[in-house]
Amino acid sequence: MSTVNQSPKRLTSDAMSASLARADQRVTAAPLGHALVALAEQDERVLGLSADLAKYTDLHILRDALPERFYQIGMAEQALLGAAAGLAMEGFIPFASTYSVFATRRAYDFLCLDIAEANLNVNMVCALPGLTTGYGPSHQATEDIAILRGMPNLTIVDPADAVDIEQAVPQLAAHDGPTYMRVLRGKVPRVLDEYDYTFELGKAKLIRGGGEVLLISTGLMTERALEAAAALEEAGVDTAVLHVPTLKPLDEETIRRELGRDRLVLTCENHTIIGGLFDAIAHMLVRDGTVRRITPVGLPDEFLDAGALPTLADRYGVSTDKLVERVLGLRRSQDA
């Protein structure tokens, strides 16, 4: 495992930290776990399953509140998905949780053939997506969306904050077919409730308007896009933010509408720039026969270093400061 050379100024989190909230932010602790408890109390079909990671995926909240509705499968991700498939076939609504890397890399065939081919209502809710841990490639799911986007019947959700997670859980349960949601765990920021926002499965939402720059974001990068837009406003750059929480199916109608205006456009994602949000939008434009420049902001096509998360976010260009720098640099290039 390689490591990043870290200066004392940058050492503000340890390598395994999965809580990205700042000390001054409004947060909700374990929003996934509490949302599942609330749903399970209303619907006796709702169950939780863990691959020995309940404490680290926030399913311990459901385990402790409703132990009869929780199954500990152990460190066997294939068995986790096989058990979830069997429960779904019997009419239950399972939420199966592990780390994103294990669900996608180790158990792909079981997700594909046991669950997706049968179009079962199994909901994979997986922690540590993208760059949310500094433990290096063994735990950084930087390519999970790319792995899964080609799977038929599967809906893919990348929530921005606790609001997204809380509102997504009952909609995933009600959805006809399998889902995969990248989960933020621990103390998760509350951001979107300040913008009159409501999560709708399959829909993108314009969170902030702006006439000069459009940031199309998904997952935790929406928070950074909003922070960047505020900083850019102080620099005199009017910046819009379009949040895309559902990556498959993509809300092409809304995205096309926002791309119809003459603005500098960047995509922002906590995922490799290959196979995620940027590629999905570029694919749409090619199918439409539309020529439009879009600049991707995301993780590089490489295995990432281990280290402190703030250091890594800066290194790979996905921090708020680096996003602002990228926009201003593109603006200068346009004006040159």
Rank of each mutant, 00 (worst) to 15 (best):
V46L: 05
Y195I: 10
I294Q: 09
A65T: 08
Q171H: 11
H271Q: 11
A230C: 10
Q334F: 04
L32K: 04
R106E: 11
T239W: 01
E68R: 10
E90M: 10
K203M: 08
P31F: 00
L80K: 02
F303E: 11
E212R: 14
T104N: 05
Q334C: 06
L232K: 11
P67K: 08
T104I: 07
P137V: 08
G260M: 14
E258Q: 15
K187R: 15
R26P: 05
E212S: 14
V191M: 10
A79S: 15
Y316K: 11
E233N: 10
K322V: 09
A230M: 11
S7G: 09
I156E: 04
D109V: 04
L111S: 06
E253A: 15
L323A: 07
C268I: 02
G289K: 07
R315P: 04
L299S: 01
C112L: 13
V244D: 02
A40N: 00
T98Q: 03
E302I: 09
E212V: 12
V163A: 12
L47W: 03
G211M: 12
A21R: 07
V297P: 08
D109M: 07
E269P: 04
G329I: 10
L192W: 09
M89H: 14
I207W: 05
Q140L: 05
A84Q: 01
L323R: 01
P31M: 03
R208F: 09
M181Y: 10
E269G: 01
T290H: 10
R263E: 01
I156K: 03
M181C: 11
L226W: 11
A230K: 12
E41C: 12
P159V: 04
R182K: 13
D305V: 07
P129S: 12
R256N: 09
L299F: 07
A96D: 08
Y108F: 15
R185P: 04
I273D: 06
L53D: 03
S100K: 03
G219R: 00
V237M: 12
A107G: 08
A23T: 12
Y195F: 14
D114Q: 14
V163E: 12
D288Q: 14
E302Q: 15
D193L: 06
T104K: 00
R69M: 10
L242W: 01
G329L: 13
A240E: 05
P178H: 02
L184W: 02
T28V: 14
K9V: 12
T142S: 11
I207N: 05
L184D: 00
A103V: 00
T246A: 05
Q25K: 08
I274N: 15
V46I: 08
A230H: 13
T311L: 13
T267G: 10
L32A: 10
A84N: 01
D314P: 03
